[in-house]
Design a protein around this nucleic acid. Sequence first.
DNA 1: ACCTTGACCTTGG
DNA 2: CCCAAGGCCAAGG
Length: 107
Amino acid sequence: MDEEYVEAVLSLVERIPPGRVMAYGTIAEVVGSSLERGGPRLVGAVLSSYGAAVPWWRVVTASGRLPPGSEVRARRELAAEGCPMSADGGRVDVRHAAWHPDADHPT
DNA sequence: ACCTTGACCTTGG
DNA sequence: CCCAAGGCCAAGG
């Protein structure tokens, strides 16, 4: 696993504002556009192994599902941040919570 | 070098 | 809305 790629992913995840989320695939696109490699699955692998120190719960699947195995934890964190969720709280309302670094463009 | 696995994504039933 | 199939890229056995 490339140190460079891992760092790129982790630093991006750290930039996701509280209450907002980013999909694995979106991260793969952003990071991949500069490093020219990787895909959604690789992003997942990175967070799974090295994501403990970053707000990994702000990364969800394209359909708003929470990371398998850590759903309870993620759900609690997101709720505390006021992230828009489905009524049952099992999924994130991606339509309203999705965040993209370019959209956060500085003035 | 080949095959299997995985915190994925999209499309079709 | 849920489930299954194919495509995807890289890591591990």
